[in-house]
Amino acid sequence: MKKIIAISGLVLLFSGVYGQKKFSGNPLFPGWYADPEGVIFDKTYWIYPTYSAPYERQVFMDAFSSKDLVQWTKHEKILDTAAVKWARRALWAPAIIKKDNRYFLFFGANDIQNDRETGGIGVAVAAQPQGPFKDYLGHPLVDRFHNGAQPIDQFVFKDKDGAYYLIYGGWRHCNIARLKDDFTGFIPFPDGGVFREITPEKYVEGPVMFIRKGKYYFMWSEGGWTGPDYSVAYAVADSPLGPFKRAGKILQQDPKIATGAGHHSVIQVPGRDEWYIIYHRRPLAEKDGNSRETCIERLYFNSDGTIRPVVLTNSGVPARPLR
């Protein structure tokens, strides 16, 4: 059954139950948001994005939750610079993980350009996924350039042996470092080094890692974030340390849909080989670099484990409650 309603001269078409959407639509929620971190906590989908605005206005972070990928609830200002005394602007690219019934939110701040500036990658903690989050360390976790990597765009990866890794880096360099179990610092590798570079060909920023069928999938963003060439590529290895050989590009602009598609995350439906990619893109009519929206598509794999190119849509994905 279909119902049609008119609001302010517009005609809206609903399928099924009155007012109930069957597809998420893209963008997922209103507002300019980028660099989305998608995760599942307790049968609820969560997205933690960057508030997309000029750097001086990026002083807080919002979060969004959903039971079905369709209806989203906004949680305002889960973290802001008032809770992180050393951070003053450019709160970027949150990454979150649950450990010991606490939620650890890793974030970039201040967009530092050299080792003399204050900022880098910080950690905040909360008792619930919607916060409020408070500074965990009182100082940045990473506040220097190692191997040429700007300390931004952090991703926290839990390996199958229980080890936690921080994977991060801008300026075309990517590092991996093993975190201490309490996330207060790092455990050196057997060779004594702490920050190991794993930069693949054409890497720019936005690293993501996950395991599928025993293989380590490493993904990243390429191109310039303000331009139409922003995109996502990937590699596959047998270890989180690589080596990672670029396999190809799987997410990029569609001149009929949107430009600047990139800086993503990946979620898996628990217990199923069902995957989604959450990313940002720029509407065709927008020229401002900060005009970015958070979107979602299905992520499909071929029988040989390679990833199929993602098809950009305006419809998004069907409702997917977690049971």
Rank of each mutant, 00 (worst) to 15 (best):
E201S: 10
P49L: 01
E286W: 01
A6R: 11
Y51F: 15
K256R: 13
F218V: 07
S24L: 12
E76A: 15
T199M: 07
D191I: 07
R116A: 14
G193V: 05
V39Y: 14
I198H: 07
G260I: 01
R178M: 14
E37I: 02
A319T: 15
D80F: 03
W46M: 11
W225E: 02
I211N: 09
K215N: 12
Q20M: 14
F218L: 07
D182M: 10
E76V: 13
V59G: 00
F60E: 03
V70Y: 11
T259Y: 13
P255E: 03
V39W: 13
G162S: 06
F218S: 08
W275D: 00
K180N: 11
D254R: 01
N147L: 06
Y216Q: 05
P140D: 04
D273C: 05
S239K: 06
A235C: 06
D238E: 14
P240S: 02
P228W: 04
I277S: 03
A233P: 02
N302R: 14
E297R: 01
Y165V: 05
A127C: 03
T313F: 02
E56A: 12
G120T: 13
Y276V: 09
S303M: 03
L251P: 00
G25W: 00
S52V: 01
D68T: 10
G289H: 01
G138R: 12
A233C: 08
P49D: 02
A109S: 14
P36R: 04
Y216I: 09
E201R: 12
G192C: 10
R196P: 03
H264N: 13
E293G: 03
G192R: 04
I167R: 06
G108D: 05
H139T: 13
P321I: 01
D288V: 07
A233E: 09
L251C: 02
S291P: 00
A124D: 05
D191E: 06
A34Y: 04
I257C: 00
G162D: 07
A127T: 14
R88Y: 12
Y48D: 04
S231V: 01
F145N: 09
K22N: 13
L28W: 02
I40N: 12
K256H: 08
A163F: 00
A87C: 10
I307E: 07
A285M: 02
A177T: 05
L91Y: 04
A63R: 11
G242Q: 04
T184Q: 12
F145L: 06
G224T: 13
L13V: 15
Y168F: 15
G193S: 15
N114K: 06
I267Y: 01
Y203H: 09
H139G: 06
L13Q: 13
I277V: 15
M61I: 14
N110Q: 09
I112W: 07
C295V: 07
A93D: 11
D42N: 15
G108W: 04
V269L: 09
G19W: 10
K85D: 12
H75A: 12
P190S: 05
R102V: 01
F106P: 01
V125M: 05
K98S: 10
G25R: 00
Y55L: 15
P318C: 13
F155Q: 12
K22P: 03
T294F: 07
W171A: 08
R281V: 00
I78E: 01
H139L: 06
V310W: 05
T306M: 11
D254Y: 02
A247N: 03
F104W: 09
K213T: 03
L69N: 11
P140G: 06
